Amino acid sequence: MSDFNKDEYLNDLPDMDDLSGQGAPAGADAKESHDDHADAKTDGASADKPAAADAQSQQKQTGEQTDKSNDGDDKADDTLTPLGQAKKEAAEYLEALQRERAEFINFRNRAKKEQDRFRQHGIIDVLTALLPALDDIDRIREHSEMDDSFKAVSTKIDKAFEKFGVEKFGEKGEDFDPTKHEAILHKPDPQAEKETVDTVVEAGYRIGDRVIRAARVVVASPQN
């Protein structure tokens, strides 16, 4: 084994100036690259934060505008004076009262029409049931076989029906009208210039424009 020469070993070492020009170790480069990437991510996050903040701010403003629009009427009411608020409430109450009054009037009119219709149906039912008896009274009256007491009763019956709007029609000599007369027989008459009622077999009855029963008559007709 040769002897170690200290001077030769020191002379063989490289100078510090030569070492300063060489690159950094691989570990240092990796660390610097990682640090740069982290800085880039930090800068990206910093750039995204303002955008998210702007979107959140716009959403908040939209919500505030909606709340403002919903509360607009309330705020408008708040700005009214006590007298103005009282006038507004009075106008609302008046409008509601007028609407209720109109509905009540319509209901009253409908109820009155229904009442009149039911009343008329009741009168028609009673009249229809009494028609045979009324026809018999007319026949007795025509043949003058009615005493004074019976005449008084028949007159009361006629007036009672008149009170309820029942009108009796059908008279000898009047013009024949097929809308209110039922011709049971046509009799030629040389003196007749047009069809007229010659004989009333059964009187007709009506309420207003509604014919309950047409008058049954014998019609005198011109010969030609």
Rank of each mutant, 00 (worst) to 15 (best):
A160S: 11
P178R: 11
K172W: 01
D158F: 08
S154M: 08
E195L: 01
L185S: 14
G173M: 09
S154W: 06
F161I: 01
L185T: 14
K163F: 10
S154P: 02
D158R: 15
A160W: 00
T155A: 13
F161K: 06
D158M: 10
E162A: 05
A192T: 04
P190C: 00
V197W: 03
H181M: 08
E195S: 15
H186V: 09
H181P: 02
E171S: 00
T199I: 14
E195M: 08
Q191L: 11
K194Q: 09
D198N: 12
D175E: 14
K194S: 10
E167L: 08
K156M: 13
T196K: 12
D189W: 06
F176R: 06
E182C: 04
K180I: 15
D189Y: 03
L185W: 03
E182R: 12
V197Y: 01
E167F: 03
A192S: 07
K156N: 13
S154Q: 11
K163G: 14
A192G: 05
K180N: 01
F164C: 06
H186Y: 15
H181T: 13
K194Y: 01
D198T: 05
I157W: 06
K180G: 01
K156L: 14
V166F: 09
V197G: 02
Q191D: 12
D177H: 04
L185I: 11
T155H: 14
P190T: 04
K187S: 08
G165N: 09
E167H: 12
V197N: 05
K187E: 12
D198F: 11
